[in-house]
């Protein structure tokens, strides 16, 4: 009886793949906008993410080996030479691409697109082929090269809503799915079918001192992100790859002179 079930779901899935616009039919489409004109590169989001998602303290040695784990990082790019030198910051986190290159890579479905338009990573399904990370053009997937530990009693600050990943597992930004889950849970308690705009705030967005980031459901035309996305400064990184990211950056504006 299970076989039949599986087969029918498989056939159904396959039909869905064939159908154009498969990716548009999600319950939600969680989207983030980042205004680079507000972003100062202060890295508050980096620590917020580290605190919320139990990112390990990897230590100096492993940092030197380029094995840090930072689900959100600030990339910096210099332009020009002294004295007309300019610095551009861009926070880089999982783009939750609708056409994600990583999702085709995983042989065991540890990463897939869920009905919320999230590019998900199931740590416990991961067998560590690391293909997803190789395929990811944004390089926002991080691998647990070791089992990381916390110096006692630092482990007491670990967030119980997020698991601690073991060695050999890929991890990445989840848009703080535990917060999305909590918001949906609350919505259910209130007999609401949908989560209200602004009810879900990932840790990085929550912390941002310049309010450069916004987060919400872009399927909802009234949501703040939907409005932000329409800003003429909006663009997505590496647009030419057609990964259709869920993160829209607003380009830094220039001073009128």
């Amino acid at each position: 009886m299970k076989w039949g079930n599986d087969l029918s779901t498989f056939v159904e899935k396959f039909r869905q793949y064939l159908k154009p616009g498969y990716y548009d039919e999600f319950d939600y489409h969680w989207t983030m906008t980042i205004d680079l004109d507000r972003c100062t590169g202060c890295e508050a989001c980096v620590v917020a993410c580290q605190a919320e998602n139990n990112l390990p303290i990897v230590g100096e040695k492993r940092y030197a080996q380029n094995r840090e784990i930072k689900w959100i990082r600030i990339e910096r790019y210099w332009e020009g030479e002294y004295p007309d030198v300019k610095m551009g910051f861009i926070p880089m986190l999982c783009q939750h691409c609708d056409a994600a290159p990583c999702e085709i890579a995983c042989p065991v479905f540890a990463t897939y697109h869920n009905q919320d338009g999230l590019n998900t990573q199931i740590y416990n399904r991961c067998i560590g082929t690391r293909t997803c990370a190789v395929y990811c053009p944004y390089e926002v997937r991080y691998f647990n090269w070791f089992t990381y530990t916390w110096d006692e009693p630092l482990e007491q600050q670990l967030n119980p809503d997020v698991t601690v990943r073991e060695k050999g597992v890929m991890e990445k930004c989840t848009f703080c799915i535990q917060r999305i889950r909590l918001a949906k849970d609350n919505a259910k308690d209130d007999d609401r079918r949908r989560v209200r705009d602004g009810e879900v705030v990932p840790a990085c967005v929550q912390s941002c001192p310049t309010e450069a980031m916004a987060f919400g459901d872009s399927n909802d035309p009234e949501a703040k992100v939907s409005k932000m996305m329409k800003d003429p400064r909006g663009y997505t990184v590496l647009e030419e790859l057609n990964t259709t990211p869920s993160i829209v950056y607003l380009k830094k504006a220039h001073a009128e002179s």
Binding site: R233, Y235, V237, L238, Y249, K251, K252
Partner: peptide, 8 residues
């Protein structure tokens, strides 16, 4: 990366 070049 920091945005399209010839942007208005």
């Amino acid at each position: 990366i920091l945005g399209p070049k010839n942007d208005h």
